[in-house]
Design a protein around this nucleic acid. Structure first.
Lengths: 199, 199
DNA sequence: CCACAAACTTGCGTGCCACGCATCAAGTGC
DNA sequence: GCACTTGATGCGTGGCACGCAAGTTTGTGG
């Protein structure tokens, strides 16, 4: 995962990929939610210093490029949960893992708002979130000892956690909100685990 | 909602819309998950007996057309919950409403499998599901008396319910499963409400 | 240090698609 | 029956995804 751990080829690939994704997100934010159609592939490619054909080697749609960072982050959810100490209760582990994952760094308000207020982008982000549910469910199953094949609890809980994160994002973006994302996220996740709630 | 309740124009519109959507889903199923790209707009339109331009007046992508039925059904979730008797406890009301919504009729295995095993379609279906969460959250808030603006419980629960329905669908489709969808759905939803679990 | 192989980037061409616009036909209210 | 509304269709335009075949950069063995 560290840059030094990969060879030059892989590092360059990641660099161009990130460049394209960042350029796409930046341009999308500039145009705003209603002007997504104005963000042309040509613009993204030239902003990233790459040819349109190369852009297409990495992403097969503008939505995918714009949401790539968000998608990558969501994809780390399973690993984040597994990184928690084994003895930790499920709720604590999930909350700690997700808070850690989504507060380093604090999400970018403009980017998140862009994605969550644009139907096409929301669909793409949702897809990324859902792809992350599988590993997350496996991590939950590993922690609770449940059989992922017969017991629905791990998968449902993973979906609920993903849903809570989305709700937290929406609420955090709401006008007049002053709480940190970590605080909102913790509150949202506490709604998922009422049975194990301490009080 | 009844055909007789609308004028001719509206009925025709719904008829062509349904025709296009059904044709799209049927053709998609014929080609299978891997051959989605082979389902051309021209084919959908001619199968539905309309011009390609008319297809485009109703849907702006093949994915949207294929998932339209699924989307319409999900959109009725909020109404279904509100239709439950007011005094009924939340869990019972949710389970009853969702079981009623999703067992009349029993979902089509081929269609559901097609949608859930094709990334592009899954994204579209996810978007539809998420659109339905808003009304569902409002219905939950109305039933529990929570303030949707300040309390995250209704939105998180709505997202969890939607997630549970997705998980139930996936599990129901799994090879070797013999349970009815209603049974799987009830099991999945019970994971969302552990606090009020009877046992 | 050098050549060779693997992999990435790029330009070009093709087929498909979304959508604006103008026109035609069907339905509706008076 | 007539003017009006609204949906259906044809046509043209701009844009996009992707296969293909160079050209270029990077990693490796001699």
């Amino acid at each position: 995962m560290n840059d030094d751990a990969m060879d030059l080829r892989t590092r360059n690939k990641r660099a161009t990929r990130d460049a394209i994704s960042n350029a796409a997100l930046r341009l999308a934010i500039e145009q705003g939610p209603s002007g997504l159609a104005l963000v042309r592939v040509h613009d993204i490619a030239s902003a990233a210093g790459v040819s349109p054909r190369t852009y297409n080697n990495y992403f097969s749609s503008r939505e995918e490029a714009i949401c790539a960072l968000q998608a990558d982050q969501a994809g780390r959810a399973g690993r984040a949960l597994r990184a928690r100490p084994a003895g930790e209760p499920l709720e604590q582990a999930v909350v700690a893992a997700m808070v850690e994952l989504y507060t380093d760094p604090e999400p970018d308000r403009a980017g998140l708002r862009m994605i969550m207020s644009t139907p096409e982008l929301e669909g793409e982000a949702l897809k990324a979130f859902t792809m992350a549910e599988g590993p997350l469910a496996e991590a939950i199953a590993a922690r609770t000892g449940a059989d992922p094949e017969r017991d629905l609890f791990p998968a449902v809980t993973a979906a609920s956690v993903a849903g809570a994160i989305r709700v937290a994002g929406r609420h955090w973006l709401a006008p007049g909100n002053t709480d940190s994302f970590a605080a909102v996220l913790t509150r949202a996740l506490s709604c998922v685990f009422p049975a194990t709630h301490p009080s």
